[in-house]
Amino acid sequence: MARAVGDLLAEFDAQLEEDLEVPPSWNVAPTDPVPIVLERLIDGGTVRQLHVARWGLVPSWAKDPRIGSSMINARSETVLEKPAFRKAIKSRRCAVPADGYYEWKQGTGKAKQPYYVHPGEGRGLVFAGLYEWWKGPSKAEGGPGRWMLSTSFLTTDTPPPGSESTVFGKLTELHDRVPLPMGKEAMEAWLDPEVDDAAALVDLVRSGVKDVAADWRVDSVGPAVGNVRNNGPELIQPVEALF
């Protein structure tokens, strides 16, 4: 995710509640800060805002924020049932912008080939996400009484029915799950805090995956992305696959 704050505000027609920085990253890792777009009811009106959240949702009831490192994703099929997500799915939904994401193909032994999945024509991605606020006790990360904003994005199975010959055929070779992307209309409904039929929203977003991902590309990239200390645009440059 390497877009500037001003570009994100313009793209999503969002506001800032306070000044923030969104550092560009070509190798986002769990617990890293990521931008999210959400809508809140303020003075009787709906306001769309850009925030920065920690990747890995920390439920409000958690005793330790480190639990978030195991909650970077939420399965769309069971998100309404899981204790960590079932409150957020009803009223704390967000959009998580990204330029692309990585998957790995397992080779012989420990060998893995990374792939960069991204839309064509330089467009960005928007994943369906959830967010939570967590208030830390005096000895927790963040200091006494500090609020932490965290997020997870939803995933779905791949490939959708009838799409085996599209990009999903390639994605299925890499992983049986895919982050749940949204088109513009689905995102508008997903963000609306006054819509409380969470099951219908999940179905809406899932039904559009095939169309949203129609022009996705899957490029083989170099192994340097496997080390989180590496971070730069060279990580997404296509290379010949090792296998």
Rank of each mutant, 00 (worst) to 15 (best):
M1A: 12
A2Y: 15
A2M: 10
A4F: 06
A4E: 13
A4V: 04
V5T: 14
L8F: 07
L9V: 10
A10G: 12
E11D: 15
E11T: 14
D13A: 13
A14Y: 11
Q15W: 13
D19Q: 15
E21W: 08
E21H: 09
E21R: 12
V22F: 10
P23D: 14
P24D: 11
P24H: 10
A29N: 10
T31N: 10
P33K: 04
V37P: 14
V37K: 09
V37F: 04
L38H: 14
I42H: 12
G45A: 14
G45D: 11
L50P: 06
L50V: 09
V52L: 05
V52N: 02
V52W: 00
V52R: 07
A53M: 09
R54K: 14
W55C: 05
W55Y: 10
V58C: 05
P59L: 10
P59D: 07
A62P: 00
A62F: 06
D64Y: 07
P65L: 07
R66F: 03
G68N: 03
S70G: 11
N73V: 13
A74L: 05
R75F: 09
E77S: 12
V79P: 04
E81M: 09
E81K: 05
P83F: 02
A84M: 11
K87H: 06
A88R: 01
R92V: 02
C94H: 04
A95V: 05
D99F: 07
G100P: 01
Y101S: 02
Y102D: 00
Y102C: 00
K105Q: 14
K105T: 07
Q106L: 10
A111L: 05
K112Y: 13
Q113R: 02
Y115S: 09
G120W: 09
G120T: 15
E121F: 13
G122D: 03
G129E: 02
G129N: 08
L130N: 03
E132V: 08
W133S: 08
W133Q: 11
W133G: 04
W133N: 04
S138M: 13
A140W: 07
A140F: 04
E141N: 12
G142Y: 07
G143H: 13
G143A: 06
P144A: 13
W147V: 10
M148R: 15
M148P: 01
L149G: 08
S152H: 07
T155Q: 01
D157K: 11
P159A: 01
P159D: 01
P159Y: 01
P161V: 05
S163I: 00
E164Y: 02
T166I: 03
T166H: 01
V167P: 00
E173I: 06
H175G: 15
D176I: 03
V178K: 01
V178F: 08
P179H: 07
L180R: 03
K184C: 07
K184R: 12
K184M: 11
E185Q: 12
W190R: 07
W190H: 02
A199W: 13
A199F: 09
R206K: 11
R206S: 08
V209M: 00
V209E: 00
D211G: 02
A214G: 02
W216G: 01
W216F: 12
R217L: 14
R217Q: 12
R217H: 11
V218H: 10
D219G: 04
V221A: 09
G222W: 01
G226Q: 14
V228C: 13
N230L: 13
N231Y: 05
L235C: 03
I236H: 03
P238F: 10
V239I: 14
L242Y: 14
